[in-house]
Amino acid sequence: MIRHKSQPLTFFTPKATNNSGAPFFDTGISAGFPSPAEDFKEQRLSLDKELIKNKEATFFARVSGQSMIGAGLDDNDLLVIDRSLEPTNNKIAVCFLDGEFTVKRLKVDKDEVWLQPENPNYPIIKITSDNDFVIWGIVTSVIKKV
């Protein structure tokens, strides 16, 4: 990945690989009683193929902050962002607002746009003509460490 630094998100671009993917067992992982080992059939899984639909328009960004914890986006999570998707009401978007990148839920009603955090400790932001505002891309997936 190639890294681009911007506050409060850190951006990365996908790096092309000829890797055939990691081992993948397509039988499901039991959260109850374990299945017999002979039932597993090993295949290869590419996370690029699973998570990236439009390679030229896809970027990754690391979350910094707590404003979207209610949507399951925690500090240091890795976002998959597709710039080719249409920004519509209720989508989670990465936006450029007044010189900074932010990730928020879009609320669109007629000609009005709000950026809604998913944490009650943060204010809803109403976008006005005074703002320098661009919807940069739509979040399609989040990658977490456990």
Rank of each mutant, 00 (worst) to 15 (best):
F24T: 07
W114T: 04
I143E: 06
D48Y: 07
K55A: 12
L78R: 03
K55W: 08
A37F: 14
S35T: 09
Q66E: 15
S84C: 06
N90C: 05
N119V: 06
E42M: 15
K145I: 03
F40Y: 15
T13I: 11
G21M: 04
F133K: 09
A22S: 13
E100M: 05
Q43G: 05
L47T: 07
L78I: 13
P23D: 13
T88F: 13
D26Q: 11
A57C: 12
F133A: 13
D130K: 13
S20D: 15
G65P: 05
I125A: 00
N119Q: 05
F25K: 11
D82S: 06
K49V: 09
F96Q: 02
D111N: 13
Q43V: 09
V94L: 09
L115G: 03
P87L: 02
S64F: 01
N54E: 02
I92R: 08
T128M: 09
D74W: 10
I2L: 14
L78V: 14
E38L: 06
G65Q: 04
E86D: 13
A16K: 15
M1P: 00
N131K: 14
I52T: 03
I29W: 03
A61I: 05
E100S: 07
E38S: 12
T140K: 09
K41V: 15
I52E: 01
I124A: 02
N119D: 10
I127L: 04
I29G: 00
K107H: 14
S141R: 04
K53G: 07
I81F: 05
Q116L: 10
E112P: 02
T58M: 00
F133Y: 14
I92N: 05
L45R: 13
T10D: 11
I29M: 07
L106Y: 08
K107M: 12
F12E: 10
F12R: 10
L97W: 06
T102L: 02
D98I: 09
P117Y: 00
Q43N: 12
V63L: 02
S141A: 14
I92W: 06
N19I: 13
P87I: 06
N121R: 10
L106E: 02
G28V: 00
I69M: 05
S6M: 13
E112Q: 13
D130G: 05
F101A: 03
F11P: 01
K41P: 01
V80C: 08
A31L: 12
V139H: 00
E38Y: 11
V134G: 00
K53P: 00
K107E: 14
P87Q: 05
I135D: 02
C95A: 15
N54G: 01
D98Q: 07
K107C: 09
S129Y: 08
T17C: 07
K110F: 08
S64H: 07
S129H: 10
P120E: 08
